[in-house]
C-alpha cells in the first residue's frame, strides 16, 4: 500500500470521528432522533399486536421517526413491561404497552416490578372485546350447555387463555364461582395459540380477545358470549355477561408507559403523537376490526386510573382466593 494512502485514511477517520462528535447533542427538544421501540408484550399477529401496530404506525408519522414493534410475549403480558422497567433507559426510545396484568400480577405473586413506582405512564388508549368460543363441532350450543355439563363433570371443562392471571383467567374464574362450577384453565401464549387449541379441540373452550373473529365468521368457531357492556354490533346473537346473569363487564383497558423517570417533555411529545393516532380514522377502523373502541385518557387521568384499577383488582383477587400469601 502506498504511503499517502495512510494519510488519507487517517484524515478520513478523523473526519468520521469529528462528525460523530457533532451529531450527538441529543436532548428532549430534538426528541425523537432515532427509531423508538414499542414493546408489545403479546405474540405478533394477535389483536393487541395488530392494533398496536396500526396505532404505532400512525403515531410514527406525527413523531417523524419509525416506531419498531418488539414482541416480548409471556407471563400474561407482563414479561415485556417488566423487562422494560428493569433494563431500559428512560430516554423515550423504549416504551411498552401496559396490559392490566401489570397491575394484577403483583397482587398474586412475587414479581420484579412495582406498578406504582416503576413506570412513567404516558397515555391510555383503548380496551378489548373479550368472548368465549368453542369449536363448531362441540356439544356446547350455548353457555347454558357448558354450565350444565360442568355441573355434572366438575373440572372436566377446560378453557384456553392467553396467560395465567389475564382478565380472561380472572373473568372465567369469577363466572365459574358465580355459577357454582369448576373449570380448568390452560394458559397459552396469546391469540394465535388459543385459536389453534380450541379449533383442534385440545381445550373445550377459548376465552380470548377478538382474534377468533375470522374463525367465527367462517363458522369454524361458535361464539358463546361476549364480555362487553352491550352486545357487539358484529355479533348481535352473542349474549353479554349481564344478560347471562353475571353482573360484570370485562374489557381490560390498556395504555402505554415508559420506564420510571422520563423527561416530562418527552412524555408530552409521545402523548400528543399517540393521541393523534387514536383519533386517526384509519386507526379507528383497524380497532373496529377487533371490536376495540378508543378509550382516551391523558397522562394525569391515566395515573389516577392506575390507582383505581389496582384497588378494584385487589378486591376481586382476594374474593377469588388468588392473592399472594
Amino acid at each position: 500500500m502506498p504511503r499517502y494512502g495512510l494519510k488519507t485514511i487517517a484524515f478520513a477517520a478523523m473526519h468520521a470521528v469529528m462528525g460523530a462528535l457533532l451529531s450527538t447533542a441529543a436532548s428532549a427538544q430534538d426528541y425523537p432522533t432515532k427509531p423508538i421501540t414499542l414493546i408489545v408484550p403479546w405474540p405478533a399477529g394477535g389483536s393487541t399486536d395488530i392494533s398496536m401496530r396500526a396505532i404505532a404506525d400512525s403515531a410514527s408519522k406525527v413523531l417523524g421517526q419509525p416506531i419498531v414493534i418488539d414482541n416480548k410475549a409471556g407471563g400474561g403480558g407482563t414479561v415485556g413491561p417488566a423487562t422494560m422497567a428493569a433494563a431500559a433507559k428512560p430516554d423515550g426510545y423504549t416504551i411498552s404497552q401496559i396490559p392490566i396484568t401489570v397491575f394484577r400480577l403483583p397482587l398474586m405473586q412475587e414479581v420484579s416490578w412495582d406498578p406504582a413506582k416503576d413506570f412513567t405512564y404516558i397515555i391510555h388508549l383503548t380496551g378489548y372485546t373479550f368472548g368465549v368460543t368453542t369449536s363448531a363441532e362441540s356439544q356446547f350450543k350455548s353457555w347454558k350447555d357448558v354450565v350444565e355439563f360442568a355441573k355434572a363433570n366438575p373440572g372436566k371443562v377446560t378453557y384456553a387463555t392467553p396467560g395465567a392471571g389475564t382478565s380472561l383467567h380472572i373473568g372465567m374464574e369469577q363466572i365459574a364461582g358465580m355459577s357454582g362450577i369448576k373449570l380448568t384453565q390452560v394458559p397459552f401464549k396469546g391469540g394465535a395459540e388459543t385459536n389453534a387449541a380450541v379449533l383442534g379441540q385440545h381445550t373445550m373452550l377459548q376465552a380470548d380477545s377478538t382474534g377468533w373473529r375470522p374463525l367465527v365468521d367462517a363458522g369454524k368457531l361458535r361464539l358463546l358470549m361476549v364480555w362487553t357492556g352491550s352486545r357487539s354490533p358484529n355479533y348481535p346473537d352473542a349474549p353479554t355477561l349481564k344478560e347471562l346473569g353475571y353482573p360484570m363487564v370485562y374489557d381490560s383497558p390498556f395504555g402505554i408507559a415508559g420506564p420510571k423517570g422520563m423527561d416530562p417533555k418527552i412524555v408530552a411529545k409521545l402523548h400528543d403523537a399517540f393521541k393523534k393516532a387514536v383519533e386517526d380514522p384509519a386507526v379507528v377502523a383497524t380497532l373496529a376490526k377487533y371490536d376495540m373502541v378508543p378509550n382516551y385518557k391523558n397522562t394525569e387521568d391515566y395515573k389516577k386510573f392506575v390507582v383505581e384499577v389496582t384497588e378494584s383488582e385487589r378486591k376481586v383477587i382476594e374474593t377469588l382466593g388468588l392473592a399472594k400469601k
Partner: peptide, 23 residues
C-alpha cells in the same frame, strides 16, 4: 501498513452503514 487501514476503516465503515442506512 495493512493493519492500520483495516482496523480503522472497517469498523468506521460498518458504523456508518448501520447508523445512516439501517438506522
Amino acid at each position: 501498513t495493512l493493519a492500520i487501514p483495516i482496523a480503522v476503516l472497517v469498523p468506521t465503515g460498518m458504523w456508518w452503514v448501520l447508523k445512516r442506512l439501517l438506522l
